[in-house]
Design a protein around this nucleic acid. Structure first.
Lengths: 341, 341
DNA sequence: CTGAAAGCGCTTACAG
DNA sequence: CTGAAAGCGCTTACAG
C-alpha cells in the first residue's frame, strides 16, 4: 500500500509538506505542489480512510438505518434509500446501510464506534426506540418520518394531514358524498406508524365539515389478502363513489380488483392514492395520487444532516421539522360520481 | 469520548492489559478481566472503528455496489441488497452501500482508501468495467452475475442456461409446440446483460431439439410500453400456446393484459416466468416461475467473500464459479395447450 | 515556504 | 500474568 510517506520520499519533501500539497491547506511552492500531486497520481495514492478518520474525527460516511417489516410493502422503501445514498454521495459522503432488525442496537454500534458522521433514520415510528439513542449520540441525526417527540433531531415528512384534507376536498369538489379510505394495516399503526392516523383523522374532520361520509378501514399490506379486503369493502359500501388509498399494496392490487368487478375509473368510481410517481410507473397505476416524494424527503434529510455535520454554527441551530406540502399528481382518476338509479 | 485509556486508568491497569482483557487474546487474571469488562460496560466504551481499522487493517465492512439503470426494473434489486446486507451483518460485517452511476470510480475509491475488507458487485455485465478494477484491488471480491472473464473473482449466478432448458422442457411435457419468449429489453443486452443470451440461446437449442417453435423477442422494461409489447406479441402469434418471460416488468404487466384479452391461465395460455417468490407475492403474480433466488445468491456471495477475508488459505484458493440450479415454483400456470378448431 | 514532532485510539510483538 | 513501547497512516499546531 502506498502511503503519504512514500509520496513524500519520492518527492524529496517531508510528510507534512506532502500532506499540505495535497490538501491545499497551506501555501506550498508551485514546483513542490505539482511534483507531489503528479507523484500521488502516478503511484496511485489514496489516503487511508481509517487513518484520516482517526486524525480528523471525520469519516465522510453517513449511516442509513432502514427497517423492513414483513407486513410492510418493501418496494416503496428503495426510493427513500436511493434518495439518501445519491444525495450523500453528491455531497462527498458514502453511505453505511444498516438493515438490522434491531435498529436501536445497530445505531448504538455505529455511532459509538464513530463509523459515521451522522445518521438518517427511515421509517420512523411514533415511539421509536432509535430516536432517544440518536438524540444522545455525539453525531447529528435526521429522520424521515415523524416521531412523537421531535426534540433534538431534524424531522422530514410528508404533511399527511394536509394530504388527508386534500384528498377529501378534491373528492368533494367533484361532488362525491360517500367515500372509502383504506389505510395501512393495523399492525403498522400499532407499531407506531402515526402518519396513518394523521392522514385519517384529518380526512375524517374535513369530511365532517363538508358533510361527507367516510368509511375508514385498515387494509392488508400483502397480496392476496388486500385484494379480498378491497372486494369486501366495495361490497359493503355500494353507495360509496370515491376510494382513497393510504396503502401502497392496496393501490397495486386495485386494477385487477376493478377489472374483476367490471368497474371503470372514473366513470364508476373515483380513486386517489398516496404514493410516489416512480411507484405509479412501476406498478402501472392509472390513479391520481398525492405524491409521497421519497426521493425528495431523503435528499432533504441528508442535506440538512450534512449542514449540521460540516458547520459548527448549524449544529447549534434548533431542530427543524419540515413537512412537505402534498402535491396532487393528476392521472385522471377522479370525476363526477355516477348517477344512481 | 471514552477510550481504552480511560478504561485502563479506571481499572488501574495498562492499556495493553485492558485491550487483552477485552479481546481475550491472551491470558488475563480473572479479577482484572472482570473489572475491565465491567468498567467498559459501565462507561459505555465502544472501540473507535477508525483506530481499530488502522491498527488491524480490518474494517469489518464490506462494500456493496449496486447499479440502477433507468431502463431496468428496480424492485428486483432490493432483494439482492437485503440478501447481502443481512448476511454480512450476521457474519459481523457492516455494509457500505454504493449506488453511484460511475461504479468503476466508486470501486477505486472504496478499495483504494481501505474503507472495506471486500466487495460484492451486483448486476454484473458481460464486459463490466468494475471487474478488472476489483481483480487488481487488494481486497477479495464476489460477483452476483456472470462477467465474460471470471478470473480472479468469485462468481455467483443463476444457471440461466439450465433455466432456459427447464422452461422449454416443461412446456414440451405439457404438449406445447409453439412458444413466445419475452426477454429483457435490448438495452440490457447491449449493456452486457449476458444472462439474457444465456437463457435465450439455451431455450432455442432445447426447442430445436424437441421440434418446438419459439418466437424470441425483447420486451420493454417499463410500463406501459411492455404492456403494448405483450399485446403485440399475442396478436402476432395467435398459434402460440405458451409464454416464457425472462423479464420482470413483463411478468408484472401480464395479468392486466390477460384480463383485457379475456385469456385464462392455463386454459388458454400457459405461462412460466423467471423471478423470485418474493416478487411474485409483491406483484400478486399467479404464474409458475423459475426462482431467481436473489436472497440466496446475495448470501452465498457474502459467505464466500467473508471466507476469503478471514482466512489466508481461503484467499489462495482458485476462484469459484457457482451457478445455482434453477428451481421450478409451481403456481399452476401451465397445462395442456387448448384444442384449436 | 518547509520540517520535525505530537497525537488521534487502537493492537501486538517484546520483555519481564 | 502484566507493562512499556512501537506502530498503523494520517493531520496539524509549533518552530523556524
Amino acid at each position: 500500500m502506498v502511503t503519504i510517506g512514500d509520496i513524500a520520499k519520492a518527492a524529496g519533501v517531508s510528510r507534512s509538506t506532502a500532506s499540505y500539497a495535497l490538501s491545499g491547506k497551506r501555501a506550498i511552492s508551485d514546483g513542490v505542489r505539482r511534483r507531489v500531486r503528479e507523484l500521488a497520481l502516478e503511484l496511485g495514492y489514496t489516503p487511508n480512510a481509517g487513518a484520516k478518520a482517526l486524525a480528523t474525527s471525520q469519516t465522510m460516511v453517513v449511516g442509513l438505518l432502514a427497517q423492513f417489516f414483513s407486513d410492510e410493502f418493501a418496494p416503496a422503501m428503495l426510493q427513500y434509500m436511493l434518495g439518501v445514498s445519491d444525495t450523500a454521495r453528491a455531497l462527498g459522503y458514502d453511505t453505511l446501510l444498516v438493515t438490522e432488525t434491531d435498529g436501536a442496537h445497530a445505531l448504538t454500534r455505529i455511532t459509538g464506534s464513530r463509523m459515521v458522521d451522522g445518521v438518517v433514520l427511515l421509517n420512523v415510528a411514533q415511539d421509536d426506540e432509535r430516536v432517544p439513542i440518536l438524540r444522545s449520540a455525539p453525531q447529528p441525526g435526521a429522520l424521515v418520518g415523524m416521531p412523537g417527540d421531535c426534540s433534538g433531531v431534524d424531522v422530514f415528512d410528508l404533511d399527511f394531514e394536509a394530504a388527508g384534507r386534500l384528498m377529501v376536498e378534491h373528492m368533494h369538489a367533484h361532488g362525491h358524498r360517500e367515500l372509502i379510505l383504506v389505510s395501512q394495516p393495523e399492525h403498522v399503526v400499532e407499531r407506531g406508524g402515526a402518519y396513518v392516523w394523521r392522514l385519517q383523522n384529518a380526512a375524517l374532520r374535513e369530511a365532517r365539515e363538508r358533510g361527507i361520509e367516510i368509511h375508514a378501514v385498515f387494509g392488508a399490506s400483502r397480496q392476496p389478502e388486500v385484494r379480498q379486503d378491497l372486494h369486501g369493502l366495495l361490497d359493503a359500501h355500494p353507495a360509496a363513489t370515491g376510494l382513497l388509498l393510504n396503502n401502497e399494496a392496496a393501490a397495486a392490487a386495485l386494477p385487477s380488483v376493478l377489472t374483476a368487478r367490471g368497474l371503470r375509473v372514473p366513470e364508476d368510481l373515483s380513486v386517489i392514492g398516496r404514493y410516489s410517481d416512480e411507484f405509479a410507473r412501476t406498478f402501472s397505476l392509472p390513479f391520481s395520487s398525492i405524491e409521497s416524494a421519497p426521493d425528495r424527503l431523503g435528499e432533504q434529510a441528508v442535506r440538512q444532516l450534512v449542514r449540521r455535520i460540516e458547520s459548527p454554527q448549524a449544529r447549534e441551530e434548533p431542530p427543524v421539522l419540515r413537512l412537505l406540502a402534498p402535491e396532487f399528481a393528476d392521472r385522471g382518476s377522479t370525476g363526477r360520481p355516477p348517477l344512481r338509479p
